[in-house]
Simulated scan of single mutants.
Amino acid sequence: EISGREFERAAMVVPFEIEGIRDRFIAQLDLGSEGSVLYENGLKNYFDSYPWLRAKIDSSRSVYFDENRVYEFKDIVLKMGSSYVWHRNTYVMVGFGDEVPKDSVGSMVPKHIGTIGRDLFRDNILILDYPGKRLCMVDALGDDQLRQFDTLDISIEVVGGIKMPIKLGDELHYVMFDTGSSIFPLLMADSLEWSRVADLTSNDIDTLLIHSWGRLIPIPGAPVKNDVSISVADKNVSDKIRVYYWPIQGEFFREENLLGIMGNVFFLNDVVMIDFKNNRLGILRRKT
């Protein structure tokens, strides 16, 4: 429950391991984030048992990630399933996250200590099986496998993220596909566009208080107006969604020519393929 409204799926969480540590960890899968980050508060009680872990943090080089200071995490090896990923572009977010109690270090209870961004899947194909609650990463798909997907062209950018097309009526727009925005079908960054689409005369208007990288942000939402159609991959989804207004980062979305952010809600019954090599997104056709 968030701000009095029930949500069946509030986040997409994936298991992972850090090579050299037997504990099990989990992280939010956030394809809206360019970088993967681990949380300092979640790691600090591991430093005494694993001094090499602290030694991999380069505190001489700090940058800011959405207003939070991060250090580079050097030569860390993360394991997801049977795939090992050696990854230099991993960071530690300073003073962030929940502390893992000392008596939990060494236990097999999963600990939430990070966020997995899209950098981990660069030059690969990511397949998200929403109904089956599974994901996999592959180097390539065969022609017969690709033909099972309805695909659309997207662009994948360092700053702008995964940009995919949607239609408002006959107007073509682009949104950032963001698995980190699980509860939101569509977050619109322009208040005028939002008021053009949202039915602000409805009795079903709410405001959700959302935690975003340490900040609490009020997000107003409403149903779509009856005379407005929203289409994703040629499917009209207007009657299935609410539209919300994202009151921050408006300049960023204008510069990136983005209408806003699209979360997981559209795809909860689908298998989705994101081809980071060839800039395309596919939805597996359902068998009839």
Rank of each mutant, 00 (worst) to 15 (best):
P223I: 04
Y130K: 06
E67M: 10
F47G: 01
A189I: 06
M108C: 02
K287S: 15
F149D: 09
F65I: 11
E256P: 04
Y84E: 09
D227K: 02
R196T: 06
A10T: 15
S49R: 15
D234W: 08
E255L: 11
F177M: 01
N124C: 12
R285S: 12
I113T: 04
A27K: 06
T288I: 14
R88D: 09
V175Y: 00
M188S: 01
R134W: 04
V109A: 08
L284N: 02
R69G: 04
I113F: 03
N45F: 07
N41K: 13
F149W: 07
A10C: 14
Y71L: 09
K56S: 13
G282F: 04
W194S: 07
L29Q: 07
S229W: 08
D75P: 05
G161Q: 01
N269G: 13
H173P: 04
K111T: 10
R122P: 08
F96D: 02
R147W: 08
S155Y: 11
Q148R: 15
M164H: 06
I21Y: 06
S212F: 15
V175S: 01
R147Y: 03
L29I: 06
K56A: 13
F252C: 03
D58F: 08
D98F: 03
R242T: 14
L259M: 12
P247F: 00
N203P: 08
M108Q: 14
I113G: 03
Y91N: 00
I248P: 07
E256C: 13
S195A: 00
L208S: 05
